[in-house]
Design a protein around this nucleic acid. Structure first.
Length: 503
RNA sequence: GAGCGUGUAGCUCAGUGGUAGAGCAUUUGCCUUUUAAGCAAAGGGUCGAUGGUUCGAUACCAUCCACGCUCACCA
């Protein structure tokens, strides 16, 4: 079915709407006029209505979502950005335009003017004096019928629920499933609160390249593209990290960027190829300071968005109040497996992994096995907000060596509900150490690790000029939104998630 | 990438080896405060696509496409 289909190819519902369009045109009615002066929104009218108020005229605009015709009178619901309100038409009063209303359909957008009243059943409604067609809809909209039961619960009958259609035609999903709009409004509130917090801490919002000649800042496979004029290969960024730290070198004290990153990897309910990331870098601070910063930031967001420190996810109450549990990666493994592995050799750790029934694909580094043990034995237990600290150096090529613990870095990740929420470290600012770490990554790459970091000479040059001690943070915004909205899939917090071609 | 499942009217779904059904939506008629409005009637389908088995396939088989769930990969 294509949009350009001729009339013969249209189904009967669409044909009918084209015929109505022709009838409207024949009557001299413009089905697509240019503007409408509205004075009110549906929900505002309903919530402020008082039974003894004087006659009040209003003009609203929105989409027809139901029509109940009863002889010479008619009720219809109009959906606008804030909700629904009922309008009431009487043939005695509006004459021909009463009859013309039947050239309209569910889905058409109209402007409605009239005065307020309450029906016998107590619904605040608009007694219509005039309506104006603002946009004729040529496709049938799924009809959503609902009622409020005795307990006050809203029952929706046969909701528009096909996930494929909902994601592909999000515009329809948004019209007929009010919860979807709520989720995305909350997403915006969360991001607004984030900015508000960061701005208040004198962090400067900046923009860095999406198209990069080298990709870096994370372990991931990139998307690549080609610039015709320069005739060079470019990558879509997998992280902003290395560019933001160049700005710290340049003298900014604190910068942040809320960006789309792109990773050429599998898709599931936690991964979309393009996703939104917050990265923050603050000079002269370390990862200990950053833990408090994260706690305060999330408290701020929770209070702005949920008016509470707490959120309930699938029946579990999660408390975001500061002073999250802090435990080192090795301590956490000891806590949940009873085995201390910090000082064990690769061979010994392999034996432990085997004993714990951890699958290891042979060419796996010591750090890789430790990470695997952690993911399987510890991470699922981290329900309340927890900082896991001090990761092995081979897992963290951009993090600074731990000030006291050999072989570890000053890094932490925040976990909530068994999911990673953020990743942060005292940034590695020793240019010689950074070069050595890049060289190690290069070896991994030569061994076939497609996700190993590339050597970025310009970044090393920047570090050689000198970068102050710096704390850095990354937070996956989509996952944060999932957490705070109770969404089970990342697709429910991204307007237009990646889908395969419709062909 | 693997396993399981799904794909039938605009939407939500039944169903059968003899080319289809319901509710809502649509159309027509009746109905001047209804609200999942009601009553009566009617129209509407390439049964995801392509092959195969069969006298005959929407159903059985194969392949493909899309989607969902789980796992793997991956932050």
């Amino acid at each position: 079915m294509t949009i350009e289909a001729g009339l013969d190819d249209l189904n009967s519902l669409m044909k009918r709407r084209r015929e109505e369009l022709d009838e409207l045109l024949a009557k001299g009615i413009n089905p697509y006029p240019y503007n409408f002066e509205r004075t009110h929104f549906s929900q505002d009218i309903i919530s402020s209505y008082k039974d003894d108020q004087p006659k009040q005229n209003v003009a609203i605009a929105g989409r027809i979502v139901s029509v109940r015709k009863m002889g010479k009178t008619l009720f219809s619901h109009i959906l606008d950005s804030k909700g629904k309100i009922q309008i009431y038409l009487k043939k005695d009063e509006i004459g021909d335009s009463f009859d013309d209303y039947h050239l309209l359909d569910i889905g058409d957008i109209i402007g409605a003017e009239g005065y307020l009243f309450k029906t016998k059943t107590g619904e605040v409604s608009i007694h219509l004096t005039k309506y104006t067609l603002l946009s004729k809809s040529l496709r049938p909209l799924p009809v959503v019928k609902e009622k409020i039961d005795e307990a006050g619960n809203k029952i929706i009958f046969d909701p528009f629920s096909d996930k494929e259609l909902r994601y592909r035609q999000r515009y329809v999903d948004l019209v007929v499933n009010p919860k979807v709009k709520e989720t995305f409004l909350k997403r915006t509130q969360i991001v607004t609160a984030l900015r508000e917090y960061l701005d208040s801490k004198n962090c400067i919002e900046v923009e860095t390249p999406i198209l990069q000649p080298l990709y870096g800042g994370a372990s991931a496979r990139p998307f690549s593209t080609h610039h015709n004029t320069l005739d060079v290969k470019l990558y879509l960024r997998i992280a902003d990290e290395l560019y933001l730290k160049r700005l710290i070198v340049g003298g900014f004290d604190a910068v942040y960027e809320i960006s789309k990153d792109f990773r050429n990897e599998g898709m599931d309910r936690h991964h979309n190829p393009e996703f939104t990331m917050l990265e923050v870098y603050v000079a002269y601070k370390d990862y200990i300071w950053m833990m408090e910063f994260v706690e305060e930031m999330l408290r701020f967001i929770l209070n702005k968005v949920n008016n509470s420190n707490k959120v309930t996810i699938s029946g579990t109450e999660i408390n975001f109040a500061p002073n999250w549990k802090r435990i080192s990666m090795f301590e956490s493994i000891k806590e949940f497996t009873g085995i201390g592995i910090q000082n064990l050799s690769l061979d010994e750790i392999q034996k432990v992994a085997k004993k714990l029934n951890i699958d290891i694909v042979p060419p796996m580094s010591r750090g890789g096995i430790i990470d695997e043990i952690f993911s399987q034995k510890v991470q699922p237990h981290l329900i309340q907000p927890t900082f896991i600290t001090d990761y092995p150096i081979e897992l963290s090529p951009l993090a600074k060596k731990h000030r006291t613990e050999n072989g570890l870095t000053e890094r932490f990740e925040g976990f909530i509900n068994g999911q990673e929420l953020c990743n942060a470290f005292s940034e590695l600012n020793d240019p010689l150490d950074q070069r050595a770490r890049f060289e190690d990554q290069k070896k991994l790459r030569l061994q076939g690790d497609v996700e190993a970091h590339q050597i970025d000479e310009d970044y090393l040059r920047a570090l050689e000029y000198g970068m102050p001690p710096t704390a850095g943070l990354g937070i996956g915004i989509d996952r944060l939104v999932m957490l705070l909205t109770g969404a089970e899939s990342i697709r429910d917090v991204i307007f237009f998630p990646q889908m395969k071609s419709e062909e």
